[in-house]
Amino acid sequence: MNAVRKRRLIVTLVILGAVAIAAGLSVFALQQNVTYLYSPTEVDAGKAPAHHPFRLGGIVKEGSVHQVPGTLTTDFVITDRFQSIPVRYTGILPDLFRTGLSTITTGRMEHGTFVATTVLAKHDATYMPPQVKQAIAKAKEENRIPPHALEGGGP
């Protein structure tokens, strides 16, 4: 093995090693940092993680948004028209956050309330993010039509 070849071998090995480490790290980081999206029905059925953060998607129920006076804390309800989950968020809500529109929140369950750290309303003005639509469709599929899903709805 001459000097040039040896050097090339070293370079190749270093590159391969670096790529392998980077790939390993990426996959590890990916596993640590993905969050799953659940619909209220899935949360109600106990499918969402109890102690890990996850994303909760659905429609902001009409008439459910209440500001805790003088603070930045807002309480509202996210529904997929079958089940509803109360949500509490402290902070400034995005412009497109409106009742009757879909939203995706990230946070975790605490004593039956979803405590959100972020609230997203999509900026592209589409009617409903496809994920949310799918979650709702799925809830519908599993539940058929429940008798009184929207207890006391209305503004």
């Binding site: 990426s26 990916l30 993905v34 799953y36």
Partner: peptide, 27 residues
């Protein structure tokens, strides 16, 4: 490649029906 993986991973998840996932800034 890392950015591509993180960007496409939610699509992979959807296509393989693992669940609806998002990859955030912590990655």
């Amino acid at each position: 490649a890392m950015v591509l993986l993180g960007t496409l991973y939610p699509l992979v998840g959807e296509a393989l029906n693992i669940g609806r996932i998002s990859v955030g800034p912590p990655y």
